[in-house]
């Protein structure tokens, strides 16, 4: 464990040196995601300017929801997104060889070699928004609700990482995986819709098959005291299930890796 942490620290320092050279790229993710964040806020503010509730959520809950998914998104951007985003190209070009032959976990290196500090301001913005949402909602915070919320945000960030990695392991099994980012672009639309709005077949799809529907919804429901024990258990269970499946799929994919030009 200590060895892995030291390795992540070295990767972080290397990335920092790299970012100092390309300063525009440093804040690229922040600008891009920051604007998406503001637009999402404007969209729901426009809707709430005309209606009191969406489903059984008021505006304060929606603000917490937007803050939560922005937080999960930003944490993912800072830590692992830009690393695993390169996986399809590394599989296609054979560059994954360099990861598999080193005496360190290839997935660990791949995940943390492109840490992006440019999204840290977005984490701060998201936290301010969550605090604002809580303040206008009248929710009384307790140690348990704050701690539980933090744990759920961490779990949901892991779930998002799992789904991102699952999508990017597809090139292990197909000839070309260049369209994968387009698939994800489409799927992430679901992440921006509160899970409580899904019904029928959509609920099955976005709560179980592609669990984008629960990622920001479960922590929001938890902190606003509207979650049932069953929903909480389901949220945690899905994270465990997807994490086990992701690890298995990664290993299975690596065993199918045919090196350069595969």
């Amino acid at each position: 464990m200590r060895r892995n942490l030291r390795f992540i620290w070295i990767l972080f320092k290397l990335k920092l040196s790299h970012l100092m050279v390309f300063r525009l790229s440093f804040f690229g993710a922040f600008f891009a995601d920051g604007i998406l964040f503001l637009i999402q806020l404007l969209v729901f503010s426009a809707i709430y300017g005309n209606v009191d509730m969406i489903g059984n959520w008021n505006q304060a809950q929606m603000i917490i929801f937007i803050g939560t998914f922005s937080l999960i998104n930003a944490i993912s951007m800072v830590l692992a997104f830009f690393g695993i985003n390169q996986l399809p190209n590394k599989i296609k070009s054979g560059a994954l060889d360099h990861y598999l032959t080193k005496p360190i976990s290839p997935l660990l290196r791949l995940s943390f070699e492109s840490i992006d500090l440019g999204s840290i301001p977005l984490i701060v913005l998201a936290m301010v928004l969550i605090a604002y949402g809580i303040s206008i909602s009248g929710i009384i915070l307790t140690f348990t609700s704050v701690a539980g919320y933090i744990v759920l945000v961490i779990l949901m960030t892991i779930l998002w990482y799992d789904v991102e990695l699952i999508i990017r392991t597809i090139p292990f099994f197909v000839v070309s995986g260049t369209a994968i980012t387009r698939v994800e672009e489409l799927l992430e639309l679901c992440f921006r819709v509160p899970g409580i709005l899904f019904k029928g077949v959509y609920k099955i799809v976005f709560y179980f098959i592609l669990p984008y529907g629960i990622m920001a919804t479960v922590p929001t429901q938890f902190i606003s005291n509207t979650i049932t024990t069953w929903e909480l258990a389901y949220g945690v269970g899905i994270v465990l299930l997807f994490t086990v499946f992701t690890i298995w799929l990664w290993r299975f994919g690596v065993s199918h890796y045919k090196s350069a030009s595969s």
Binding site: I47, I54, G55, L186, V193, L197, F198, K199, Y202
Partner: peptide, 14 residues
């Protein structure tokens, strides 16, 4: 199609 589906989901509830 996706944009229409998500509009249908959100506005259907509203």
């Amino acid at each position: 199609v996706a944009k229409i589906v998500f509009a249908y989901i959100v506005w259907g509830v509203i």
